[in-house]
Structure formats: structure tokens, C-alpha cells
Simulated scan of single mutants.
Amino acid sequence: MTDWTSGNAAEDGQPTRGWLVGHFIDPSEGVRSSNDVEVKWGIHPAGDKRPEWTSDDQRTTLVLLVEGHFRVDVTDGSKTMERPGDYIMWGAGVDHSWEALADSVVMTVRWPSQT
């Protein structure tokens, strides 16, 4: 196992629906395999959405807009992100869903990484 890696987020995340780091990455991938954090590079065409809501997730999540126009709905509110750098963050027990209002790229960070 190596202590460092490099690559392309869009390419390296393809086998895992955009997820680059997490417990589900094979340990042979080195530092990308982690029980502490999960990182996703999400490429979403306009109209792409998660119609179902999460249920009682016990992690902290940060969603950061890289480009596009993206909405995240949480248990008691909603955030529409329009400018690169806009973000929404929530803690354990907050349910969510999302929709790409235009072609969008978002980076999601969740911790801890859980099965």
C-alpha cells in the first residue's frame, strides 16, 4: 500500500458512482480506502435527482458546488447552490434528497465512512 496517490476524480470514481475515498474502496487502492471519510465527485446532468430521501443517516455531510445549479433538500429546509463554492452541510439524523437544476458538478464529503 502506498502513502499517496494521484489521478482524475471523474475517471477514478466511475466504478463507485463517483466515490473516490471511503470504506468501499479496495485496500489495494492505498490511501483512497478509508474508514474515516468518504469523498465523491458527482457529475449530474440537468434533471438528475434523488427522488427518495435518505433515512436516519448518522454521518455528517458537506456538499460543495463546483459548477452548475444544484438544490439539496434536507429534513427542515432547502438550499439552492448557484455559485461555485456554495455549500450545504448537515449532521447526523438529517434526511436529504437533491436535484441538479442545470448540468452540475458537486463534491460531497461524509464522515465517518460507514458500511
Rank of each mutant, 00 (worst) to 15 (best):
K49C: 10
D36K: 14
E38C: 11
P27Q: 12
W53C: 03
H44A: 14
G42M: 09
E38I: 01
V31L: 05
G30H: 02
K49Y: 02
E29A: 05
D36C: 07
E38F: 03
A46C: 13
D36G: 14
H44K: 13
T54W: 04
W53H: 04
R50M: 11
T54Y: 06
V31P: 09
S55N: 14
H44V: 04
W53T: 02
G30W: 00
K40L: 10
E29K: 02
E38M: 13
K49T: 05
G47W: 10
H44I: 03
P51L: 06
G30Y: 02
A46N: 13
G42F: 07
K49L: 07
P45M: 08
H44T: 04
P27N: 08
E38W: 01
A46I: 15
F24W: 09
V39T: 07
N35A: 03
W41N: 09
V39K: 05
H44Y: 12
R50W: 01
S33D: 06
S28D: 13
R50A: 09
S34E: 08
E52N: 12
G42V: 04
N35V: 00
D56V: 09
E38V: 05
S28A: 15
R50Y: 02
W53K: 02
V31S: 04
E38R: 05
P51N: 08
P51V: 10
D36Y: 07
D26E: 10
E29N: 02
P45W: 09
N35D: 13
K40M: 11
H44G: 01
D56P: 06
K49E: 15
G47R: 11
R32G: 04
H44P: 00
I25C: 03
D36E: 14
K40Y: 11
A46K: 15
A46D: 12
V31Y: 12
T54F: 06
V37N: 08
G42C: 08
S34H: 08
R50T: 04
D48I: 00
I25K: 14
P45H: 10
S28K: 12
R32H: 08
S28G: 06
W53R: 00
S28V: 15
S33H: 15
S55V: 14
F24G: 05
W53P: 02
D26R: 02
A46S: 15
G47C: 09
S28M: 07
S34F: 05
V37C: 14
V39R: 00
I25Y: 04
S33I: 03
D56C: 09
E52K: 13
W41S: 08
W53V: 01
I25F: 06
S34Q: 07
W53G: 02
D26W: 01
S34N: 10
D26Q: 01
E52D: 12
P51K: 08
K49I: 00
D36P: 07
P51G: 04
S34W: 05
G47S: 10
S28N: 06
E29V: 00
S28Y: 00
V31Q: 04
D26P: 01
S34T: 07
G47Q: 08
R32C: 07
W41C: 09
K49F: 01
N35L: 00
I43M: 11
I25S: 05
R50L: 06
P45F: 07
G47P: 05
D26C: 00
A46L: 12
D48M: 03
K49D: 15
G30C: 03
W53Y: 01
P51H: 09
D56Q: 15
G30Q: 03
S55Y: 11
V31K: 00
E38Q: 14
